[in-house]
Design a binder for these strands. Structure first.
Lengths: 157, 157
DNA sequence: ATCCAGACGAAACAAACTTGCAATCAGATG
DNA sequence: CATCTGATTGCAAGTTTGTTTCGTCTGGAT
């Protein structure tokens, strides 16, 4: 019965705005998309309830809060047994330094995005994460020199 | 000039909250950190002005808006001449499908996070991005099977 | 043709944000 | 040691924004 009701063009227009700035007043959004403020508000609420909008957050500049180093790590595991993979996932999720973690196909099994204050901190992290974990076969690190584009915006046009 | 004035523990506590949910009322934040609402508001404003808070955005579930596929792409270029690198950066920034782009050291030069609706769309994208660009030597794709952890939260503890 | 469900807008209402102001505190200066 | 200066605070008033209510309209099914 809950027809997941795909988004119409109003919803998409609203999402496009909120993904750029979710402090935009509903009245302003309404003017932009030709809808009243209450209509905008009801649509936003529905999208939050259905999980289309996953969260509303402030984006922080890592360098300005003492985390100037961003790293990518490709991790290859020894065994892909489900329980070992799940354990690895839980381990990555638990670490605040691991900003993002994806389980992928290809030459690696996991790709991590890590943010740290110093290389020493990263070195300590690798020790705990990889060397002490004997299901990790191999890992490869890339150091970000330039965060050219960083966001989680999804095209909705 | 405003000395960049490092953050105190109030600022960090506020950031921790806003990175999880920036719709939290300032009054509630105030209670959590033992400050009045106006004090919280002034600190937030200052952090926005100094760029510590880069943006306030809604996070959208890509799968629910028709972008179920997330990919990682390692790109290696032929020449690292500054102007060619800059041109590449501009090209990546311009593409909405490219969610994130980092310029990195290591076996690759760029790492991209790409979100698309279908593999056909990705194939078309690679054609435009890589095959028609003769400064791209090689690229390698990883398909995300599980978005284990996705966020841009920076530890501030 | 009628009914029903869903969505809308206008206006009233409630909550949150913002600003002005006086008081407080820390560090620098005489 | 007193004082001055600058920054930050809390409170209270003022303003903006979010939320609810209610009556209307549309489209689809009976």
């Amino acid at each position: 019965m809950p027809a997941p009701q795909s988004l119409d063009s109003f919803d998409r227009a609203i999402l496009a705005i909120l993904q750029k700035d979710n402090t935009t007043p509903q009245r302003a959004i309404g003017e932009a998309v030709n809808l009243s403020a209450p209509a905008v508000q009801r649509r936003i609420k529905r999208m939050e309830e259905t999980g289309i909008i996953r969260a509303n957050v402030a984006l922080v500049d890592p360098a300005k809060v003492g985390h100037p180093i961003t790293l990518f790590v490709e991790v290859e595991v020894e065994s892909e047994r489900a329980e070992l993979i799940d354990a690895a996932k839980r381990g990555f999720i638990a670490l605040p330094e691991v900003q993002q973690c994806y389980y992928v196909t290809g030459d690696a099994d996991f790709i991590l995005v890590v943010t740290v204050a110093t290389m020493a901190e990263y070195e300590a992290l690798t020790r705990r994460l990889f060397f002490e974990n004997n299901n990790v076969k191999r890992f490869r690190t890339f150091v970000a020199m330039d965060r050219v584009k960083v966001g989680l915006e999804v095209p909705v046009g």
